[in-house]
Design a protein around this nucleic acid. Structure first.
Length: 480
DNA sequence: TGAAATGTTGGGGCG
DNA sequence: ACGCCCCAACATTTC
């Protein structure tokens, strides 16, 4: 018997460690998931991710039952739990897919050492990213710290490795589990002390694959065909919406890449550009995972450490206004309310609210980073940290600090009719497009006529962008 | 995966 | 017909 320890690979297909566990044990693999309180109740966990996880576990269990097995779920400290389960089923070994985040690496080293002491075999496999952090290095043998050259090397390597990399693994049959193994139901969110969250995407592998197929369908106008030109339009459903599935491995990264590369064969110019743009997003994912692996200090502070001394103002009241979507800047508030309603935010909107928090409210980017982790259904330490350092200008490949988004012009550019704003801020529904991103410029008479008086029905701007822009520039100049 | 300030150019109105 | 000015449109520089 070999235990397959599921972590962020909650799927049966294209699962390297699971496939190998089944092969090596002739089907006698025990699928195990451990609910670890250190993760469930960390300050960087969201109730949304826990709920999505639980639904994905139920889906995984269902899929396993259809194959004559089931998912064993235990709650506890990982090493102690693995030891107990290994004892119960006399396991020869434990297989799992690697997770390169610092917390997971420390845990896995501890677990591996402990299990090997007990005489169990432990094997781990590459899975979360297309390439592991040490596979893509510059000519000097160092990790890339700028995205564009990284992507070039990464993309070229896909072409080099080609078919071998993209080969699909076939799933073998499962043998039934031993009867004496305890069969406990998967707990509910309430049982874990977590508030149930509404409005999440459906969890699990089947739901993820459906979404992937729909996105990569070249006949779908909202899919990858229009991705390059439309993905920044926040009111349009033009993004893949696969992040939550990718984060927990409900679908495999390699599966996404493989399907996208195959679709290139049938793609015309538009579709091809969309596919390459999306493949580039998978490269971003690998890039930020690599950064976190090679430079774990980014979780504590700036990648460029000279930016650790910036004198943030950290006004708690302004932070609360940002969190609750009442800054008076419609595009910012709409985005924050989307986050509250869906535990998800459009990528362009993440950049806008990030820039606003850091450069208009002069608040430490780590406050925003943590808040995102506490709300997002797809919150990923590597990608979230990379994104925040990017907007704050403190990171790798960062925009220079003086690139400051103007929330009004970003709104005009990427939500030209104001549909996104109106969807999430219903009190602005009647505001005409020309004022929708700067409602405070509406003449008082117009405000009265429409029944939307700024300061009464919708907040006046909490700060003046033009003023704060200058203050941010000064803050960065002095901080360096 | 910026925005704002500043510089340049060229068409058209006008005396 | 010409010079002058205005200003939109575009380009470049600066933060």
């Amino acid at each position: 018997m070999i235990i397959h320890w599921f972590r962020r690979d909650l799927r049966l297909h294209d699962n390297p460690a699971l496939a190998e566990a089944l092969r090596a044990s002739d089907g006698r693999a025990l699928p195990l998931f451990i609910l670890d309180d250190a993760i469930l109740h960390s300050r960087r966990t969201s109730a949304a991710r826990v709920c999505f996880l639980l639904e994905s576990l139920r889906a995984l269990d269902q899929a396993l039952r259809e194959r004559g097995s089931r998912l064993v779920v235990r709650r506890g400290e990982p090493l102690a739990t693995l030891r107990r389960v290994a004892m119960e089923c006399s396991a020869d070994g434990v297989f799992f897919n690697r997770d390169d985040t610092p917390f997971a690496r420390a845990r896995d080293e501890r677990v591996t050492a402990g299990l090997r002491q007990d005489g169990r075999a432990v094997r781990s496999f590459a899975d979360v990213t297309v390439f592991e952090p040490d596979e893509i290095l510059s000519g000097a043998g160092k990790p890339y710290t700028v995205y564009t050259p990284f992507r070039k090397r990464w993309r070229a390597r896909i072409a080099e490795v080609g078919d071998e990399l993209l080969r699909e693994r076939r799933l073998r049959q499962f043998a039934p589990l031993p009867d004496e193994l305890r069969d406990e139901p998967i707990p509910t969110a309430e049982e874990l002390g977590v508030t149930a969250v509404q409005g999440l995407p459906p969890g699990g592998e089947a739901a993820g694959l459906t979404r992937l197929k729909h996105f990569l369908d070249l006949g779908n106008p909202d899919g990858v065909r229009g991705y390059e030109t439309q993905r920044n339009l926040m009111a349009r459903p033009a993004t893949s919406r696969l992040s939550a599935y990718l984060h927990l491995g409900c679908i495999g990264t390699m599966r996404c890449l493989r399907d996208a590369i195959r679709a290139l064969d049938d793609a015309d110019a538009n579709a091809g550009n969309g596919l390459e743009a999306w493949i580039g997003e998978l490269a971003w994912r690998d890039f930020y995972h690599g950064i976190l692996y090679h430079f774990p200090h980014v979780l504590r502070g700036a990648f460029k450490q000279q930016y650790d001394t910036l004198a943030w103002e950290n006004d708690e009241q302004l932070f609360r206004a940002w969190c609750e979507g009442r800054t008076g800047y419609p595009i910012v508030d709409a985005a924050m309310r989307q986050l509250a309603a869906e535990s998800w935010m459009h990528n362009r909107a993440r950049m806008i609210v990030g820039s606003f928090l850091v450069k208009d409210l002069l608040i430490d980017w780590r406050w925003g980073e943590r808040f995102f982790m506490q709300r997002l259904v797809d919150g990923d330490h590597a990608a979230n940290n990379g994104g925040w350092q990017w907007v704050a200008g403190t990171g790798t490949d960062a925009q220079p600090f003086f690139r400051i988004f103007n929330p009004v012009s970003q709104g005009t550019k990427f939500d030209p009719h104001g549909d996104y704003v109106r969807q999430y801020i219903p009190e602005l529904a009647a505001v005409p497009a020309r004022y929708i991103h700067s409602p405070w410029t509406m003449p008082a008479e117009e405000q009265r006529r429409l029944g939307i008086v700024i300061g009464r029905d919708y907040p006046a701007p909490v700060v003046d962008h033009a003023v704060q822009r200058e203050r941010a520039l000064a803050l960065y100049r002095e901080g360096r």
